[in-house]
């Protein structure tokens, strides 16, 4: 087990207004790793996908239930984010993770949520059971902190 350097937890109502709150909160927590703009954008996007899934699919957009996020910063600039809901669960995880597959019949969601989480982080695990809710675990390793990235002449 890698040593946990810093951690935080968030619990909030499963309503769509909290999608931006969740990604901003996680991005703020990551600021201590001095991420690049692209790394920060990747984290915001991946968290937004996981939280939206919890609200729209986990709790079927009912506005009830809570979303639980835990963030841990481990040694070697590694961030582990868990997004958990206690909603309906996923019957077929492999099918749900297929690019372009969407459980939303309106066809307005693209079906790319898991593909984005997968491509914008270094590791993605999905644990789910019918009636037991879903947990998404995303791991991202940030690029080495580089003092030289700041031009000494500008200090």
């Amino acid at each position: 087990m890698k040593k946990v350097i810093n951690e935080t937890e968030l619990v909030f109502s499963a309503v769509s207004e909290n999608e931006s709150f969740a990604r901003c909160a996680v991005a703020s927590f990551c600021a201590q790793l001095d991420p690049t703009l692209e790394e920060l954008s990747d984290i915001r996007t991946a968290v937004s996908e996981a939280v939206t899934n919890a609200i729209v699919h986990g709790y079927r957009d009912s506005g009830t239930g809570k979303v639980y996020i835990s963030c841990k910063i481990l040694e070697n600039r590694t961030l582990v984010i868990k997004v958990r809901d206690k909603g309906c669960g996923i019957e077929d995880i492999a099918l749900a993770m297929t690019p372009l597959y969407s459980g939303d019949p309106s066809g307005e969601r693209g079906g790319m949520g898991f593909s984005i989480m997968e491509s914008f982080t270094d590791d993605l695990k999905v644990i789910s059971g019918l009636g037991k809710g879903t947990t998404v675990i995303m791991t991202k390793k940030f690029s080495p902190f580089n003092f030289c990235s700041v031009d000494p002449k500008t200090i």
């Binding site: 954008s41 996007t45 939206t52 066809g107 307005e108 693209g110 079906g111 790319m112 949520g113 984005i116």
Partner: peptide, 13 residues
């Protein structure tokens, strides 16, 4: 400033 797969869905739709 920010767009996720819902934005992609919005564009495709």
């Amino acid at each position: 400033g920010f767009m996720d797969s819902s934005g992609l869905g919005l564009i495709l739709g």
